[in-house]
Write a protein that binds this DNA or RNA. Structure first.
Lengths: 247, 247
DNA sequence: CGCCCCCTTGAGCCGGGTCAATTTGGGTGG
DNA sequence: CCACCCAAATTGACCCGGCTCAAGGGGGCG
């Protein structure tokens, strides 16, 4: 099983029967057009959604109407586990497809069953911890750091996360507006920043697209340390853990 | 059991026997002096640490030597669950006591046992989700937002989290340096910001202390929406969930 | 009693924001 | 195939919040 979701689950330490059970649960699918909402802000959800293909983002709208992007969702990512776990919390967060997306739908009732399997429950926990790590990392990059550093960091993170699920293309499906909303800079300045990166031959000159040419330099600019996404290493401990649980 | 940790666990939905079992596990304690390290950056840990009393913060040191504070830990908070879950990840994060702290120590081996109880495992998951929510909230406040908004948001969050574990004092044990490192502003500007808040009678004039006088105005300035910390509401779903699991 | 850490204050600079046009393409109906 | 429309990308001018550098105050603790 080499689908992004399969890779993702394996990287979280889900194996054999548990993997099958989970993959059974994501048979029901929905297709979402680019720029459409996967979940509208304020919706009450009764299912958990998982991105199978395409790229989405979760965002919040501020009172002044501006959008802040909280995170991107690549294939294999859960969109709204937080709603399932913390119910009412997180109303006000919407999810939008950036490209056409295929999304799997899991009823809460079904989730309950999945969670009764310890291996899956702990995998979900690990996924949440990883999300914490992402935010933590983003915070230290976004809090301080120049514009170029922030943008570079964002791109590095997304590339790394996509690679983790087998997507090695150097293009990222973001508009400059998306990037601006994600890193908290103005569109104008994001534009200038990207031009700088293009001039340094870090991004390609291809217009209307974000294509990373020089990954190494990008990482240097971003001060990006990919260790925090390196699942194999992260699981060094859990390989043991999981086996023990299977005894 | 009204200790902060007890309150915390209850608010995560831990009840009865599970509660007792957990509280048994935190009998071993360590005292840490103010400004000492609870965990040194780069240390390899073999235990999980839980703050029982006092306030700590986790931080990362940048190459230029500056400190960024990633989060504060109040009584009832785990300090380094992430290390337990994601092993090697998160080397480079240190934890420092801001005030004298009492810290409980749980061996990894012991954690494994605790996690074999589904109610505790899911409580930990919920705690991680809550942490995600904290970071998410912080990100949208820190990303954009003026200095005064960011500082106010930080203070609101900390007050709310302390209240959740029964600490209602309006004073927060942070130096202005701590605040600067946490919100990503210069100390100088944090100072000016705090003076502004004092002039508006939001903070008291008491020097060398952060004492919130006008909570309501502070929240308005911060655009702080405490729902994301409102555990009772968050658990509306889990109250059912937990009982079902106990069947 | 003196040192050191934190808090203050002042001056000047600059990264990034805002406002406002303009260009570029891709998609679309005719 | 062509004229048109709209969202995204660009560019230029100007402004300001927050940073840096630098120099004092205190107050607590050894």
């Amino acid at each position: 099983m080499d689908s992004p979701l399969g890779l993702r689950l394996k990287s979280l330490g889900v194996q054999a029967e548990d993997l099958d059970v989970f993959l059974q649960a994501v048979q029901r699918r929905v297709f979402v057009a680019a720029h459409a909402n996967v979940i509208r802000e304020g919706d009450v959800a009764k299912q958990v959604k998982v991105v199978l293909a395409g790229t989405a983002c979760s965002y919040r709208r501020k009172e002044d109407g501006s959008r802040s992007i909280l995170s991107f969702h690549h294939p294999g990512d859960f969109c709204d586990l937080h709603r399932y776990v913390l119910s009412d919390l997180e109303r006000g967060i919407g999810i939008e497809a950036l490209t056409p997306c295929t999304v799997a739908v899991i009823d809460y009732q079904n989730m309950d069953q999945l969670l009764s399997r310890p291996a899956l429950a702990s995998a979900f926990w690990r996924a949440s911890m990883l999300e914490v790590a992402l935010y933590r990392e983003r915070l230290s990059s976004a809090g301080r750091g120049s514009a170029i550093e922030r943008v570079a960091h964002l791109l590095c993170e997304q590339l790394a996360r996509r690679e983790a699920v087998g997507i090695h293309a150097p293009q990222l499906p973001f508009s400059q507006i998306d990037i601006a909303d994600a890193v908290g800079l103005s569109v104008v300045h994001v534009n200038r920043t990207i031009q700088t990166l293009r001039m340094q031959n870090v991004l390609s000159e291809v217009k209307r697209a974000i294509e990373v040419v020089d990954r190494k330099t990008l990482a240097r600019i971003a001060k990006f340390d990919s260790r925090y996404l390196d699942m194999p290493k992260l699981l060094s401990k859990w390989a043991v853990q999981v086996e023990r649980a299977g005894d």
